[in-house]
């Protein structure tokens, strides 16, 4: 079953097309990355999925049609938005009690375990926490919910590198199993690349690409040559060319090759720049 079905979804903010006729199916049990530049439509897409925004087209979430926001969907879907929207007037303890009382899917054991690993001060008001601490609290809440779908919109914004690594390597790994789906939008693509299975590129509200990462990476190679052999690379019509310390490298189809060129697999950020923000020289 597909957990997310979007058919011809368009969202306008006045004259601006934030989402432009997006059609997309995401299967269950995958970790999917959503990549786009600032203002590409990532947050709009996440919020439309939950019915927070009004849109044209059709969306089904876990088999349920979404026309407007339905609170019941949050029994199965947890969401971390890109802004820190916890209630600053509540204390950490009050926030945890509030969320645990409202969510039947709350896993107290998991919450205790995550709490014991964190240094969150229970009696402190959320508004007095640092940005990183607030994000930790939100992650703790979300990961304590036993839900089928996790929507993470820039989840580690403001976190230090140690916690970011812990989040992506350990915590998220503990949440994930084959029955669950995670959709993550992030700018720190290098940090999530190793856990992602599928990737979506979005630009100016349009779907640029949706593919299995392994398949995508097999399609392309990075060929590196000394700069004087640049012409040979250009003849292969590369998606992207980069210059580094007397060398030139280009992303090309993996079916082509150049003698004595260094061959590497492209990174996700290379492919993103190539597909969305890339240029031909």
């Amino acid at each position: 079953m597909n957990v997310i079905e979007m058919r011809n979804v368009t969202k306008n903010y006045g004259k601006l097309k934030a989402l432009d006729d997006i059609t997309l199916s995401l299967p269950a049990g995958r970790i999917i990355g959503l990549l786009g530049k600032n203002g590409a439509g990532k947050s709009t897409m996440m919020r439309s999925l939950l019915g927070f925004l009004h849109f044209q087209g059709e969306i089904e979430l876990l088999g349920t049609p979404i026309h407007r926001h339905r609170e019941s969907i949050h029994n199965h879907v947890a969401f971390i938005p890109d802004v820190n929207c916890l209630d600053n007037k509540l204390t950490v303890q009050q926030t945890l009690s509030y969320v645990s009382a409202l969510n039947p899917s709350w896993n107290q054991e998991k919450a205790n375990e995550l709490m014991s690993r964190s240094d969150l001060p229970l009696k402190q008001k959320v508004g007095h926490l640092s940005k990183g601490m607030k994000t930790k609290l939100y992650l703790l809440i979300t990961l304590s919910l036993d839900v089928q779908l996790l929507l993470l919109d820039e989840p580690t914004l403001g976190l230090d590198i140690v916690f970011r690594k812990e989040f992506f390597n350990t915590i998220l790994g503990e949440f994930y199993d084959d029955s669950k789906t995670i959709l993550i939008s992030t700018h720190q693509v290098e940090e999530v690349e190793h856990i992602l299975q599928d990737i979506i590129f979005i630009d100016h509200g349009k779907l640029v690409l949706h593919e299995d990462i392994n398949v995508l990476k097999k399609k392309y190679s990075v060929l590196t040559l000394p700069q004087e052999r640049k012409k040979e690379l250009e003849n292969l019509n590369p998606l992207l060319i980069n210059y580094t310390l007397g060398h030139v490298s280009g992303i090309v189809s993996s079916e082509v090759a150049i003698e004595e060129a260094q061959v590497n697999r492209p990174t996700l950020s290379d492919l993103f720049v190539a597909k969305v923000g890339g240029y031909h020289e």
Binding site: F52, E71, P81, N84, C85, D87
Partner: peptide, 18 residues
Amino acid sequence: DDVKRNAELFHRSQPVSV
């Protein structure tokens, strides 16, 4: 007030009827 304090998304993301 929740909108002004930027906490609306958090509260509306809870499974409880409006």
